[in-house]
Simulated scan of single mutants.
Amino acid sequence: MRARKVPQEALAGLRDADWVDRSRRPYVRDGVAWVPVREGYPADGDLPERALYTGRGYHLIGEIAVLHGPAPTEAELAAIIAHCRPRGVIRVAGLAGEKRIPKIEVLSGTVGETVHREQGYTFHLNPAVVMFAQGNRTEKVRMAALVRPGERVADMFAGIGYFTVPAACSGAEVHAMELNRAAFEYLERNSIENHVEGRVRAEHGDCRNLLAGYYDRVIMGHFDAPGFLPAALAHVRRGSVLHVHSIGPAETEIRRHLQDAGRAGTITVHRVKKYAPRAWHMVQDVTIS
């Protein structure tokens, strides 16, 4: 792989660089990133292709490897450590309560705060304290592509900013709401880190009490989102779009809430990822008519 050597902190500034080969991922180690180079552009060297990893699935969030599901075997854990050399490895057993606090087990090394870079965005977080929707990567990309400059967007469950930051980078004015104090503090920090603090109004508290005025787009990135529709529907108008997340289909419940609110709309369903056997994480795009 032809690559250029750059400081890790410079990765975010390369999102629009012509020479970057976006079909491959950068290789980062010890604060240095080797960024794949497109044909026809100079490179600093050639890196050997990394061996294909076929072991236990995991997500790498910054320097922390995160596992879900049952505890790994010693061999599985050793294979993960050899493959990505993380600072620490944790297993997330679930999320507790409406604040979505991770229930974790430290399997190796140390955890604590880390910096995660994804598609040109930078996120500070502690994955042992706040959740990070790593599996929603394609949905984040889709949101960033759908948002238009100048839109007024409500992010009702903003977390650390995983939808807020891409939407604001696309030119939206984002009203970001988060109930978890730790996640809210990272939301504010990540807005500044990604230079969109001027387009983000972050508020700490229950989104049902914070919604104000009318929005062109409402992002409802929580599996209990259908139950929050009565509050959201009071702040939309014709042409507004709501992105309602759920586990499994929620069209029937959405249509009931639309009827109760005296609204009409079209519903388009997207599958995000497999959540469990016979269960999908889904997003219903509801366009108000």
Rank of each mutant, 00 (worst) to 15 (best):
Arg4Asp: 05
Pro7Met: 04
Gln8Thr: 04
Glu9His: 07
Ala10Thr: 05
Ala12Trp: 04
Gly13Asn: 03
Leu14Arg: 02
Arg15Tyr: 08
Ala17Arg: 10
Ala17Cys: 13
Ala17Tyr: 11
Val20Ile: 05
Ser23Asn: 15
Ser23Tyr: 14
Val28Asn: 00
Arg29Asn: 09
Val32Asp: 07
Val32Trp: 11
Val32His: 05
Ala33Val: 09
Ala33Tyr: 11
Trp34Asp: 04
Pro36Met: 11
Val37Tyr: 07
Val37Met: 12
Arg38Gln: 09
Glu39Val: 03
Tyr41Cys: 04
Glu49Lys: 12
Gly55Ala: 04
Gly55Tyr: 02
Val66Cys: 01
Pro70Asp: 13
Ala71Gly: 07
Pro72Trp: 07
Thr73Ser: 13
Glu74Gly: 14
Ile81Leu: 00
Arg85Glu: 07
Pro86Cys: 09
Arg87Cys: 09
Arg87Ser: 10
Val89Arg: 03
Val92His: 01
Gly94Arg: 01
Leu95Arg: 00
Ala96Asp: 06
Glu98Ser: 09
Ile104Phe: 01
Glu105Tyr: 01
Val106Arg: 01
Leu107Lys: 12
Gly109Cys: 10
Val111Ser: 02
Glu113His: 01
Gln119Lys: 14
Gln119Leu: 15
Phe123Gln: 07
His124Pro: 00
Pro127Trp: 02
Ala128Glu: 12
Ala128Tyr: 03
Ala128Trp: 08
Val130Arg: 01
Met131Val: 00
Met131Lys: 00
Gln134Ser: 09
Tyr162Asn: 13
Cys169Phe: 14
Ala176Glu: 05
Met177Glu: 06
Ala182Glu: 06
Ala183His: 01
Phe184Arg: 00
Glu185Val: 06
Glu185Asn: 10
Asn190Arg: 02
Ser191Val: 13
Ile192Lys: 06
Glu193Gly: 04
Asn194Val: 06
Asn194Trp: 08
Asn194His: 08
Val196Gly: 11
Arg201Tyr: 13
Glu203Gln: 05
Glu203Phe: 00
His204Gly: 15
Gly205Ala: 04
Gly205Glu: 07
Cys207Lys: 00
Arg208Ile: 07
Arg208Val: 06
Ala212Lys: 00
Gly221Arg: 03
Pro226Cys: 12
Leu229Glu: 15
Pro230Phe: 01
Pro230Gln: 02
Leu242Pro: 15
Leu242Trp: 11
His243Asp: 08
His243Asn: 10
His243Trp: 13
His245Leu: 08
Ser246Met: 12
Ala250Met: 09
Arg255Asn: 14
Arg255Gln: 15
Gly265Ser: 07
Gly265Phe: 06
Thr266Ser: 02
Ile267Phe: 13
Arg271Ser: 10
Lys273Gln: 11
Lys273Glu: 12
Lys274Gln: 14
Trp280Arg: 04
His281Asn: 13
Met282Leu: 13
Met282Val: 12
Met282Pro: 10
Val283Asn: 14
Gln284Asn: 14
Val286Asp: 03
